[in-house]
Amino acid sequence: MKSLPGALALILAAAVVSSGCTPSSADTVAAQPAAASTAAPAPAPMAASFVPPPEAAIPAGPLGEVIRQGRAIFTDTPTHARAYVGNDLSCSNCHLDAGRQANSAPLWGAYGLYPQYRKKNGRVNTLGERMQGCFRYSMNGKAPALDSAEMVALETYAWWMAKGAPVGVALKGAGYPKQGFKPPRPPDYARGEQVYAKNCALCHGSDGQGQQVAGRNVFPPLWGPQSFNWGAGMHQIDNAAAFIKANMPFSRGDTLSAQDAWDVAMFMDAHERPQDPRYGGDLSETRRKYHDSPMSLYGTEVNGHLLGSSPARP
């Protein structure tokens, strides 16, 4: 197993060479064993951000009904796709403003880039298969069938959000803004704990378990049994830092320094969460196969605890 200091020694160097986030979601760039990339180079971003159609423009009739169903699933996933969700998160907890907000992996930025090759599973994925991964990792649940009503509705909502956008073009504002984004110093747990207490605990709680009203998340849990599992892209420090820098604190994105964003991402991701569903009984082997990156703390020791070795607790 790797110790925390050994992993952190590589993080800053890795950040320097990190490319921009694939404009679909953080999971797309999850760490894999080192290998020559077979992915085609991403096309140059557009000069201006794409503006998706307003909700009021959803058409009437059967098509509009399915678009609205997709939006409902996206914004309140535990209610509208309960059979496939293993925690209390909704898609819109990370893809903000019902999947509309630039720099938070908006749906309109992902739709036109699929099918695409993903290192995470070593093959070309359709958009539906990409969404299935969200259910498995971010929702800590199980994947709906590609022809299920839930998956059809989500893909239809994504299609409608991207109406008018060019196909095969990496749109500005898609994904999380990672290009050239690195901290002056390697991220630090103790500094991150201070950033969290000052900027995050008010909404997400001092214990990281978020806040609920009437059984529905107002602010999502960031670690523990109801958060995303160790297979989700947000468990990687660089993905979390890029999302935090652009979007957090909520409604006050881009107010934290790059250093603060990396520090608090490290603090958040240094907590236990549900097991990676690809875990085969050997923590070291699971890290080697799926987390062989300084951006992943899975299988490293933090404050005397070996992450991934015990059930997640608040």
Rank of each mutant, 00 (worst) to 15 (best):
M1V: 15
M1N: 08
A7S: 15
L10G: 15
V16F: 09
V16L: 12
V17T: 13
D27F: 12
D27Y: 12
A31Q: 07
A35W: 02
A35V: 12
S37E: 12
A39V: 13
A42Q: 14
A42M: 15
M46I: 11
A48Q: 14
F50G: 10
V51Y: 00
P52I: 08
P52D: 03
A56I: 05
A57Q: 12
I58N: 01
G64F: 02
T75A: 08
T77L: 04
T77E: 03
N93G: 12
H95L: 05
L96Q: 10
D97T: 13
A98M: 08
A98R: 07
A102C: 09
A105M: 07
P106V: 11
G109Y: 07
Q116V: 11
Y117V: 11
K119G: 15
T126S: 15
E129Q: 15
R130S: 14
Y137A: 08
M139D: 02
A143K: 02
P144C: 00
M151W: 02
A158V: 04
W160M: 09
A162L: 03
K163H: 11
K163M: 12
P166V: 06
V167W: 06
V169I: 12
L171R: 04
G173W: 05
A174T: 06
Y176I: 13
P177R: 04
F181M: 02
D188W: 08
R191P: 02
N199D: 13
C200H: 06
L202V: 14
C203S: 09
Q211Y: 14
Q211E: 13
L222N: 09
G224A: 03
F228K: 11
W230P: 04
A232T: 05
A242C: 02
F243P: 00
A246G: 05
D254K: 15
T255Q: 10
Q259K: 01
D260L: 01
D260N: 10
V264F: 05
M266N: 11
D269T: 15
E272N: 00
R273I: 09
P274R: 00
D276G: 00
G281T: 02
L283T: 01
S293C: 09
E301H: 02
E301V: 15
V302H: 00
N303D: 11
L307E: 02
P314K: 14
